[in-house]
Every structure is written in C-alpha cells, then in structure tokens.
C-alpha cells in the first residue's frame, strides 16, 4: 500500500529533473555572461578562443579541472613518492625517474613500502581500528543526529532558521579550540566528573580522558553538523501528505516512520554517513588530543611515519592504501545505486 505514494513522488521528481534539463543551456549561458565580468575568466576565454573550445565547454569542464589540479595531481605525487626509497637527502627519498645516456628514462619502482604494510601487523591493526572507530562513531552520530534533524523539521517554520543557525554556530570557533575544550570537560578533575560527583551519581572520578571513549565523544561532537545538515535537507523536502495518507490507510506511526519517513530520508542518511565516516577514518587531531597513547588510528600512524621515522615513501604508501580503502566502498555504493535506478 505504502509503495504507491513513493512512486508518485518519484515521478514528480523526474518531471522536475526533466524540466530543469531544458533550462540548463540557458542557465549556463547566463552564468557565462556573468562570469565574463571577471577579468581572469575573460582572459581565459580569449586565450582559448582560437583553440576550438567553447566557453560553455570551459564552464562545464571547470569541476573536472578543479579535481585534476587539487585531487588527482597531489594524489599522483603521493603515489610517486610511495614507490621511491627512503634516503638521507633533500627531499628525503630517491628519484623515481632517471635519465640514462640522455635518451633512456629509467624507472625504478620500489614495492618494499607496500610489502611492509602487509607484513607488519601494526598497519593492519591501525587500519582496522580506524574503520572500527569511524564506523561506530558514524552509527552513534546518526542516532544522535536523526532525532535532532527530525525535531528541527517538525518545529514551527519561524524557528527553523534559528535552529539551523544553532547547528552551524560551533563552526565559528576553531575546531582545535573546541577539541581542546573537551579536555577540560573530560579530564579527571574536569567539569563532567565534578558535576557527577556533586550530584552524588559517582563517588570516584571516571577516567574518560585519554581513552577510546573520549575519541568517540570528540568525533560525534565534531561531526554532528555534517550529519544533521543533509538529514535536515532531505527530511524537510518530505511531502507530509504521504504521512496523512499512511495514517488514513491504518498504518501505525512506527511503521509509517520506517516505511515512509526513513526511506525517503535515505539519501540524507547516506550522505550524512559518508560525510562523517570518511573524515573520521583519517582523523588525527581528535585521537591525538583526546585519545590515550594506546589509541591506534591510521592518522596517528601516518604522522609517526612522516615525522618520527621521516619515512616519506612509507607514509605515502599508507596514505595511498587509506585512499583505496575509502574509494572502494564509495564506488561499490555508486554501482549499487545505479543498479537500483536501472531496476
């Protein structure tokens, strides 16, 4: 029964998509005109005028150029370093390409760094522990964030903007300072222990600081807005009449929530989870400040390789593997979604 309204919603979205498609060319043209007012863009346009690239093509390719410059190029540099060998020199690694007899380019690939990653269980334990910590914190953040976002969309319209501001407000303070503040709250003589002891709930101060628990608290606190904002966006768009229809048809509130509200908010849930999981996986500052010496996370391992061992090639290899660990589930997820769409 509840399938029907969903289909209705989808076709409506498709209709909107189709309509906006017609306007794309016009909108691009408009954007191009606006951008021409900016000198750099104008120069770029005149520079490519003779090369057969249309300004429209340039505009469309901007995100790709951006990715190429700021994602692919640094990645290739890191990849290149990961295949070189540690050396006491400036920079501290061997060259990958060497010109022999002025004509041959000799490439020396050193796979030892990757081999070491597999041989030494330290790296695997650090990777797995990072996945575990990031995974658990993502789920916990979702559990905290969902009711928050849901409550915000249910609040009267005039409050919503203020509530949204409150979620964003912490960003006005430096991230580092906010994490430092948690040290003051969580330490043995900290505010939390003081409060709990004065309320008579505990009589011995809890040891939270310098443990994994503190890391979880830090991650959930820091990344909560990244979870709430996409959730709020997808929940706010929801058509309330669907809920009324479900109620009319005799669905109980809990069932309605699962089958309609939650399912319709899935894109928001997924976006929020990715936004939390990905940065949490490589997190360095939070485990370093709040975690104990025993908290093993890949971000800290990477730091130690880079700064304490001064082994740029190995730390580059760690970074490349970290990226692969992140990219594989994302690509798999996209494939799954495409299949879903096709079905």
């Amino acid at each position: 029964m509840s399938q029907k309204p969903r289909e209705g919603k989808r076709s409506q979205v498709e209709y909107l998509d189709a309509r906006s498609g017609e306007g794309t060319a016009g909108a691009l043209e408009e954007l191009h005109k606006q951008l021409l007012l900016l000198p750099p863009y104008r120069w770029l346009c005149s520079a490519i005028a003779g090369s057969g690239i249309s300004p429209r093509g340039l505009l469309i390719s901007t995100p790709y150029i951006w990715l190429l410059l700021f994602f692919l190029a640094p990645f290739l540099i890191v990849l290149k370093i990961s295949f070189s060998e540690y050396a006491i020199s400036q920079p501290p690694y061997t060259a990958l390409f060497e010109l022999v007899d002025d004509i041959y380019v000799q490439i020396k690939l050193n796979l030892e760094n990757y081999q070491l990653l597999f041989e030494d269980d330290l790296y695997w334990r650090a990777y797995l522990n990072s996945v575990k910590i990031a995974g658990i914190s993502t789920i916990l953040t979702l559990m905290v964030g969902y009711p928050l976002a849901y409550g915000m969309t249910r609040a009267p319209q005039r409050w919503r903007l203020a509530l949204l501001m409150l979620v964003i407000l912490p960003f006005w303070t430096s991230f580092l300072i906010r994490v430092y503040a948690w040290i003051g709250i969580l330490k043995k003589e900290g505010l939390l222990n003081l409060l709990l002891i004065n309320l008579g709930i505990i009589d011995q101060p809890l040891t939270i600081m310098n443990t994994d628990t503190a890391v979880y608290i830090g991650i959930i606190y820091s990344y909560l807005p990244f979870m709430v904002l996409p959730l709020y966006a997808s929940l706010e768009k929801m058509d309330d009449t669907l809920l009324e229809a479900a109620a009319d048809l005799g669905s109980r509130p809990i069932k309605t929530f699962w089958q309609i509200t939650f399912r319709l908010s899935l894109p928001g849930v997924i976006a929020g989870c990715f936004l939390v999981f990905i940065p949490a996986l490589g997190e360095f500052v939070i485990p370093d400040l709040l975690g104990g010496s025993g908290t093993l996370m890949i971000g800290k391992t990477l730091w130690a390789e880079f700064f304490s061992n001064r082994d740029w090639p190995l730390s580059s290899a760690v970074a490349v593997v970290l990226l692969l660990i992140l990219v594989i589930p994302i690509v798999a997820f996209q494939k799954l979604q495409e299949k879903d769409k096709a079905a």
Binding site: G294, T301, N309, R310, D311
Partner: peptide, 17 residues
C-alpha cells in the same frame, strides 16, 4: 634509517600495549 624504523616500531608497540 632501518634501525630508526625498528626503534619507532618498538616505541609504538610499547605505547599501544
């Protein structure tokens, strides 16, 4: 360098146990 890695490794292991 090779010994340095062993020392850092020993240190990390000791700290994380």
């Amino acid at each position: 360098p090779k010994v340095q890695r062993k020392v850092t490794r020993l240190w990390t292991k000791m700290k994380s146990s």
